[in-house]
Nucleic acid binder design. Structure first.
Lengths: 123, 123
DNA sequence: TCCATAATTCGAGATTACTCGATATATGGA
DNA sequence: TCCATATATCGAGTAATCTCGAATTATGGA
């Protein structure tokens, strides 16, 4: 990932409505949601949401697919990994031992090692 | 991490000079760099850089420590982990299996490959 | 073809962000 | 105290972003 694309992604996520939309679409993986449903979900005018969706798409964070009269949007999960990697790659390239714990803490969230713990991460 | 802080962080990183500064400071962990050196490194006026550093600090991405006449800035590595976790936590809470590969791909960047000893993780 | 639905694009006013010269504050040394 | 260094804050001009009403494009059905 080059700098310009990272800027686009961060700018896209630096807006409350768009950040919520991206997280909503991540939660709705892999089915996705049509544009209209997203607008209703966020209580935002339909054309305003269309602009936000275009910005997220241009940033490579989500993707669109027409399905009959609706356009289904889906989160591109790889984008999160690419962004995080872009930030830390210089650090890791030179000194892996510094970034190791950073990733170690993130892994438990997604590793279904023990599903029967006393606390659910879900809210 | 709450939404408002994530917005601040993404907005801070959505600017070329600040994104470069943050990555520079990650590369310079854990020593950090004084403000003046950072400005010279980026070929940016000193007061402009001061503003950028204030924005990164307010976003919780870097931290400042006065050392004699200089002020040393350091990256807060945890911020990257917190941001990534904020994005994917809903997905992971409900369906860990979807996000697992996402993290798996990021790990190799920070895991000391071969070279034996899997111990000794700093500190 | 006509109509209804679904989504995008256009345009403009209001708000916010970026930059940098000028000025102010803080520290250490003579 | 006075000076030099290091950084922060102020102010204003310029540029970019956000929002949403209005108009436009695309699809499917009668």
């Amino acid at each position: 990932m080059e700098s310009e694309r990272a800027i686009l992604a961060f700018a896209a996520l630096a807006q409350p409505t768009r950040l919520d939309v991206f997280r909503l679409l991540i939660a709705r993986e892999p089915e996705g949601l049509p544009a209209g449903d997203i607008a209703r979900h966020m209580t935002v005018p339909q054309n305003t949401m269309s602009t936000h969706l275009a910005i997220l798409t241009r940033a490579g964070l989500i993707e669109a697919e027409r399905q009959s009269r609706s356009i289904i949007y889906r989160a591109k999960l790889d984008a999160v990994r690419e962004l995080a990697f872009y930030l830390v790659k210089d650090c890791c390239g030179g000194r892996p031992e510094i970034c190791a714990p950073l990733i170690a803490d993130l892994s438990p969230c997604c590793t279904p090692k023990n599903e029967a713990t006393q606390e659910a991460v879900h809210e």
